[in-house]
Amino acid sequence: MLQIIKLAWRDLNRNRRRSFFSALALGMGLSLLLLMAAVIEYEIRSSMDTSIRLQTGHLQIRAVSYNENRSSLAWEDLVEGPAAIAVQVAALPPVSVATPRLFASGIVASGDTSAAARITGVDPASAANDPYRSGILSGQWLGADDRDGIVIGQPMADKLGLKAGDKPNVLVNTANGDVDSQAFVIRGIYSTRTPGFDNGTIFMSLAKAQAITRAGDHASAIFVLLKDRDQTGAVVAALQTRQFTVLTWDRMNALLSDTEELANSYMILLYLIILAITATVIVNTLVMAVFERTREIGILSALGMRSGRIMAMFFAESAMLALGGIALGLIIGGAMVAYFGSVGYYI
């Protein structure tokens, strides 16, 4: 057996160029597939992460009567005393941030143009706002007890011709069904590079949002980020005793979850393809080797090498090529994934 491997190795060495290109072909195919798999995985994961960080959080604690199809500001549909609850939730070990948020609909008007806005009242100091805070393009994020400042997204600023320091009018729906209106100062303009989000979402301090919507000491939701999304189940279980509805990230991002599942089965398909390619290359080099070297096989046979050993020798050659190719593929593919991972890319 050892002798056969030695012979096979010698043959591969003697046909160095052919061996190298066979292995390289396999390696390239493999590494491209790896890269593709990584891109898809990364893409799905990052859009899920984006959605979680910007919009849904890992968990949202809502009032039991909350209806996700209606953004009601009626007190019974809101979470009462949200600050205290947020503090309690934040104390759970797997929880990274928990902060109350109040959602209301409104309109930002400047001159004769206006745009619909999803008003989000946030605790300006919370770490949950990092994605918006770090996306500030001009001006600054909301101050700790900012009573008349808002932060708006770049698309809306462009559309309404607003810049930091301007004072547009904001019309807000209130808890009792009225509309209130007030001039706000634009503290800053942000971009999260997610136009669908930036376009409509504006931020003001929670206290101000509660005041202008007459929501009192209520919030629409406690927005919760976990240290690790795999701990969702544990945290949900821990929160189960309370009198709230707990929404999880996968339910809130049902569409993306489905896509992720689809991508996972796609990944399995991809691995099968890799397997098939590997097998094809092995068979191909085997067949090529046999066709190319019928004479050599004849010679070895005349010298008294048993046909089983001849086959074993050719097979050992192909197997070594395949192993070389796989190693090459993992190295090249790994390097490409690492490179694109560090440089980053946009589609």
Binding site: R14, N15, A302, L303, G304
Partner: peptide, 25 residues
């Protein structure tokens, strides 16, 4: 077949018209 291969290996040498050497060796 295998027994014949063994016999060739042990008892018989060949010289062919077209030399029949393995080209890479």
């Amino acid at each position: 077949r295998d027994q014949r291969a063994d016999t060739r290996r042990a008892k018989i040498g060949f010289v062919f018209q077209f030399f029949a050497l393995i080209p890479t060796l």
